[in-house]
Amino acid sequence: MTKPFIAARAVNVFYGANQALFDIDLDIEANKVTALIGPSGCGKSTLLRSINRMNDLIAACRFDGSLQIGGQDVYAPAVDVVALRAQVGMVFQKPNPFPKSIYENVAYGLKIHRLATSKREMQDRVEWSLKSAGLWDEVADRLDEPGNSLSGGQQQRLCIARTIAVQPKVILMDEPCSALDPIATAVVEELIDSLRKDYTIVIVTHSMQQAARISQRTAFFHMGKLIEVGHTKDVFTNPQNEQTQNYITGRIG
């Protein structure tokens, strides 16, 4: 196995008195799509939100253990969450474009981080992001229209474009297709696959078929524990753990 890009070691996460994650050791490789699967409440989203410290927003949430991205400890005291989140992007379950124009949506991250020095550069980077998200051809002539005038699938790709505009190293996706129809889902899945060469992608999904289709590695969580992690093709054809087998074949586990 190659050197992991994201390494979680002995990660325990608590919400108040409830423990959401138990001793998670997980390696996530660079330039691969890693799918986190498991039943609701298994802790997969908690782990995802621990990676960019979105859990910090929940006052009662406590993190214990070590989580490194590219060798840097995410929970070290010197870490500025703003810098962290600028380099670890996130796409949410429900498409949530800002109530602004398509252009403004993509340009927002560039503006707050001052990543473009001129208007010309800003335009170029917005165009590049929309092209990378496979949305440019559909919106090139209506960049001034509000982001939420787009269809659900387009909105989600707009959110992806907004995320990659600031060129993060990692993209976290929290059930990005759960609100989309199958065709829009297929388009987003194709997009995720094409983004893999430039980004490390971690995706939480409820759809095992989706995890099987787009990920190279799959981690199965149950009741806050990491049950099994491995190459997707192995996990879905011949899982080593009985619980994994029962979950992915739709038995009561």
Binding site: F236, T237, T249
Partner: peptide, 8 residues
């Protein structure tokens, strides 16, 4: 039914 693993 789109079976997986053992089911498949």
């Amino acid at each position: 039914r789109q079976p997986m693993a053992l089911d498949l």
